[in-house]
Design a binder for these strands. Structure first.
Lengths: 215, 215, 215, 215
DNA sequence: AATGAATGAGACTTCATTCAT
DNA sequence: CATGAATGAAGTCTCATTCAT
């Protein structure tokens, strides 16, 4: 399970001076806006550079292609989101609580970074490798925590990776409704409650025991 | 919650003769292959018509645009998948059993119709309206059943639509792993077991009761 | 010694109808003008299509790239020139006479087909494979004739292929002066006389014999 | 007949210090490699400066444009080759011997300076003026020698410039085969023998006399 | 004397769509 | 009902050249 960007990732070109670094960041920011709002294929390099306030040619000083900046974005988002979630659940008393907090943090975070959600999902069709890496990475870290919680008898036994993926699936599909279709949708709070109950039922050990480190 | 194709859907053009019907189906089949294998944007009308064995111009006798045939495909898949799943769970003794059977049926079905999965997911970026309709439709029907089961005390109370979406999310994210990344993945059976436990834990009423119409 | 277009040559795409054939010829004609006048790299597809009176996209119905039409042109010119020269020397009484006639025919032909000369020479830098094929082909046919003449004792013995190449070299370098730099140049006739003397001295058997296979 | 670089040639810019001179030479060397290996149009200033180990901007301190450095290269090669050939034939006892030695020296020299041959030929399409100057210069010097030899009755009478061009043509076309296509080619020695016979037959006075100082 | 980031014009190529047959 | 040649807009990318440091 690859937990590191495939060697094909990361190798962007580009100046390394102070000024260069600034330009690079401007491009990434502009690209996030474009890709998020218009989607990969409707986005054009020229809009990106316009947004960034640089000439078209400048783009290619930093990224070899449209695909490459997209990939860089996906990697960036992976790091950002994981850091954010880690911090959010840092103080959780139990795995169950971590789940509740984590789900809410995820949805709030996505709401504030509208483009992130869309870009990550679209990556499946733009750069499947990066997409896979994104989720594989996320799920692996997640699974690690679940495995530990299983060890402590806090949650139901089972393949932790599958559990992680299931939890991620719940979060992302709730995202569809609340981030994408958010018209006539019940308030987030109510959905969170139901979802949390679902999740906790899904991972908490069956009442009768079975999660108690036993087996 | 739209449960019917928005008026913008469905209105394909096209002859109604016997021969015409055949051509139309050939085009849809070819499009499914192209879109599934190369993605919407890399697919070209000319490849589709080639695959279908008709001239390029013929395409526009049946569909007004590339987007339109894509949408038609999404609708077709919606019908197909729902029918298939209904039949699969028809004989289930309980909601819990229906879930187990349904999840497995879903994954097996997608495996046999490789392109379906991809096309449905990509529709988010090609025709968000159709995408939304696809899942909204699916979730509504699903929610209906869950609501009934709640009424019978078979499952945990809560917003059935949210439950439905969560269940769909679990299924689709398992699909990512087992349909898309299927390299070094544990056998489907094992994952199904964990996932089923997760799902059933997630929807079954808490042991102490509480699903029984009570509360 | 490849005497047939390498498999990479010849495979142009393109409609095969009557109208298609006409368009194709228009494109080839336009390309010849462009390449001849402005050189391969300064020529642009758009000028070519403009000259031909078709839309830009039409170009790619017939040729896969700028390189491909260039190659097609080189092949076409190879056929044209060889046919012309064959016909010109058909009635020559001896090899020596054939050379004289051939050289003159070559120069006159190039003068009437200004672009041909330039395109063939430039092919060395655009498509070395085609360039090689052009001259290899030309030299092989030529060498065949020389070998036969050697057999008849009409000309000096020696590697006929080398002789052929030398003769071609003389012709092409005379072309430089008389076709390309033709400003303050002595009349063609005078140069032809010197060149013919040179060539005939070069190939005729040494007086004392040496072509002794015959005579 | 221009025997001196047209005023448009030669006027490169550039510092005159010790260090500056070194940089200039590094650039010329790098350009020779690039132009020789990839051709004028595929060569890029940035590769040239990279090879030379200087920054891109530095290039324009020494040459006003890509064309200018190319021209400088052609001029340089002209000087180099002429000097080399002069020296090679210096001790030749007769014009005939000089030709034999000269042809061989030419081919050996080109083999050791692979790029020279290609660059000189390509100059026709990059800077026709420089190309013409290159050959005009070469042919004029050559013709001078031939004229003298005619005077001494050593060689056949005729326009010496045409003779010179013919001889150059033979050499350059032998170069095509032995420098460019050198795969399945007979050993250089054998070709040299045939070519020498050809050349000497071509220029030596007809046996019966005619070169005897008469006229 | 040198640097190297930035520029921006321009080229090739693709492809959804139209239309005369 | 079908054909397939033609269209032309749009987009990615390259690269010679400039300029502030």
């Amino acid at each position: 399970m690859a937990t590191r960007p495939p060697s094909s990732l990361t190798p962007e070109t580009g100046p390394a001076t102070e000024r260069g670094e600034r330009t690079r960041r401007k491009l990434l920011g502009a690209a996030e806006g474009e890709f998020g709002e218009r989607g990969f294929h409707h986005a054009s390099i020229s809009s990106i550079t316009q947004r960034a306030g640089v000439a078209q040619g400048t783009f290619y000083l930093y990224f070899r292609s449209k695909e490459e900046i997209f990939r860089a974005l996906v990697e960036h988002m992976n790091r950002t989101m994981r850091r954010h979630l880690s911090e959010a659940i840092a103080g959780a008393a139990s795995r169950a609580e971590a789940e509740r907090i984590g789900l809410e943090a995820f949805l709030r975070f996505c709401r504030e970074h509208e483009n992130l959600y869309r870009i990550v999902m679209e990556s499946q069709f733009v750069d499947p490798e990066a997409h896979r890496w994104y989720f594989t990475t996320l799920a692996s870290g997640y699974a690690e925590r679940l495995r530990a919680a299983q060890g402590r008898g806090e949650i139901r036994r089972g393949d932790p990776y599958t559990q992680a993926l299931a939890l991620i699936g719940v979060a992302f599909f709730m995202g569809k409704r609340h981030l994408l279709w958010g018209d006539d949708v019940p308030p987030l709070e109510q959905a969170l409650e139901t979802a949390t109950a679902f999740i906790q039922g899904g991972i908490l050990p069956p009442e009768g025991g079975g999660g108690e480190g036993a087996r």
